[in-house]
Nucleic acid binder design. Structure first.
Lengths: 379, 379
DNA sequence: TTCATTATGATGGAGACCATCATTAAAGGC
DNA sequence: GCCTTTAATGATGGTCTCCATCATAATGAA
């Protein structure tokens, strides 16, 4: 008896059917005919028409181009109006701030990148963040009050209200209230979350983990982190500290990147390794060995379908995956499939967008969410 | 846009409302008046009456005793007919087999215990299992074809079909097809799962983890294991091997119980420790130290609200919890609350019952589940 | 031009919910 | 013992949502 969905009156049924219709419509930008939609929602054609009329009146659905060429009377097509609203995703990284402006389906419309030195203080880094946000809004010719929701990614632990509780990687960063800060540039909800968690979310949304319900994501870069997707959802943990296996001293995640940073040779260690430099190969091996202990702990705990490797080092994944798999084989009962992220340095920011998108989704699913599209489009 | 619940036609709405009503009714054995029920389901009184009439006709609900003493016309009371069906839960342990016969709400009606030596072979252990099942059915004056569903707990990894894939703790146990074996004694679905996982399930059902969504359960006994409750549900993992952190050599879970077994003194080590025996205290300390490494890995991975300690050693938890908390404080970012199981040696078997109960719940939630109670009561 | 094909839109009907109100049944005061 | 108060019951009428069905409309092909 797991049913969370409590029934209700007839309007509730209509609401559920409208949500189903929207979910189907969002699957294809080109839209659907009523007949197709009826088949996919399981409703009758007549009811489907009713639902679509409703949603059109309320601004959620629009008529799309008819497709020519078929036999018989050409059908009208309807599509979800993903362009009706905008979402913002911001990744506040060590070296730069990246802001993405997307439509409601998370299609990136504009991006803006602002460099930031690793040693930057709180004020300067927040200023860089503002620049990135303003830049991307300018590119999209939007003002901040036209955003439906915004997501922000940062290193460190984040509390429920959007404050950074603890950050070791960035200077003077602990205690920053990012939700409040961003709230001065944009209206609408601002959601803040840890960067590794958001990168994981992005992978399960648009990345290589799209079709997997249980995923361990490893952020492999100058800092090491993890994010967990469990049963298709981001797992945060009771104190928002899930995936922090790196805190265990036996897991050498703090030490691991040093093998690559402090290697005895010159230039890019990965290039050197590809050229056959033995010391480079050995250093990478040490890195993977350290990394793999933590990954094994995560994998043994969760038994995921998939491990995804992302972060700055993922670009050199050809050198990492093989050794990593070998190490996992040593420790794990069942080594999961290992894949490399293809989202490049956008993964974290995309996860932030997804955070915003999920917030909108929650509002829609809740009671009065679909009443009118105007409730989101403020003044 | 997470909505899994797809709408449908009016009968679907009625079905959802009927499920809600049953969920409310199950919360109190004494039953509810229509007015109370209407308030809790959110339906109008009239519709509630309709739903209840339906459910009564189909056998799911019965009228209960009126409560005397109030002012005004005494209301009829209605209750869920938990007694309409029976569930079986079997725990095949190292030293004994325990079978529980319960009603649909998991209230234990009868239990039957059959001793089994640790060294028993496959045939003999299966025979003991049969004895336990037959015994508890006899006690309840039921034949095996009156069971709605059965759950079985065993050590080792279990595959999706009810076969034991790998068991190190029991002799000749790997490869046993428990679902098929039990299927000869009972009709209805037989569900098989790992014992640690089921003990965790039991805690989140009727135990100290009732109100927590994310729980790490530790089975502390002659063998060590873990079960995870994530977002209120049992987390199995892709290959059903979640929680097997003990497989990591750095985590001394195989070695841990030996500290207690091989301690240099005589008699019960816990009694000795309470009497102030230093060697006993030291051995327990070593045990907890080993245990805590694995628990820390689980806690850091999941950041649960709660850690529950169960299993054979839980009876001496007064000696374990303090040191365990101290060890976790050393490693974890945020040490969760730690509680001791109160389900004693029934926990695992109760989890097996819950497995069966959930299966019934799934059938009810699915489409035609509530049509008539007769679909479950065979022959 | 006519036919085959497919989408559209209107009609009538059934099921599920709700609000409202007259009726019924008990407890307690007179 | 009768009357009042309280609260549940059961019936009525209305609305909403969905469905099946059918006449109509629009297009390509013969």
């Amino acid at each position: 008896m797991t049913a969370e969905t409590t029934g209700g009156d007839l309007s509730r049924l209509r609401h559920l059917n409208a949500l189903t219709a929207i979910r189907v419509l969002r699957a294809d930008e080109a839209g659907f005919t009523l007949t197709e939609l009826a088949r996919r929602t399981g409703l009758s054609r007549a009811s489907t028409e009713d639902v679509v009329r409703d949603l059109t009146e309320r601004g959620w659905v629009a008529e799309a181009e008819k497709t020519a060429g078929g036999v018989g009377r050409p059908a009208r097509r309807y599509r979800f109006r993903a362009d009706a609203g905008h979402l913002l995703g911001v990744d506040i990284g060590r070296h730069r701030v990246l802001a993405l402006l997307t439509d409601l389906d998370g299609k990136v419309l504009h991006s803006h990148r602002v460099e930031a030195a690793p040693g930057l203080g709180r004020i300067e880094r927040l200023a860089a963040t503002d620049d990135a946000v303003r830049g991307v809004l300018r590119a999209g010719a939007l003002s901040g009050d036209r955003l439906w929701a915004s997501g922000v990614a940062t290193t460190g632990l984040v509390d429920g209200t959007g404050k950074v509780m603890l950050s070791e990687a960035l200077h003077e960063w602990t205690g920053v209230d990012l939700a409040a800060h961003l709230g001065r540039l944009v209206t609408g909800p601002v959601l803040v979350e840890n960067d590794s968690k958001l990168a994981a979310l992005a992978e399960s949304w648009q990345g290589v983990a799209r079709h997997s319900r249980d995923v361990v994501f490893i952020l492999s870069g100058v800092a090491t982190g993890a994010g967990l997707i469990i049963d298709g959802k981001l797992h945060r943990g009771f104190g928002n500290a899930a995936g922090e296996i790196g805190a265990l001293p036996a897991v050498g995640w703090t030490r691991a990147p040093e093998h690559l940073r402090d290697w005895p040779g010159e230039g890019d260690i990965f290039a050197a390794a590809r050229d056959g430099d033995r010391r480079a190969v050995a250093a990478i091996k040490r890195y993977v060995k350290d990394l793999a202990v933590g990954v094994s702990a995560l994998v043994l705990t969760l038994d995921p379908e998939l491990v995804v490797v992302g972060g700055g080092f993922a670009g050199s994944a050809d050198l990492l995956i093989g050794p990593l798999r070998a190490e996992l084989d040593r420790w794990c009962i069942r080594t999961p499939e290992i894949r490399v992220s293809t989202l490049a340095d956008r993964g974290v920011a995309l996860g932030a967008v997804k955070l915003a998108a999920d917030h909108v989704g929650t509002v829609l699913a809740s009671g009065s969410g679909l009443t009118s599209i105007d409730q989101f489009a403020r003044a």
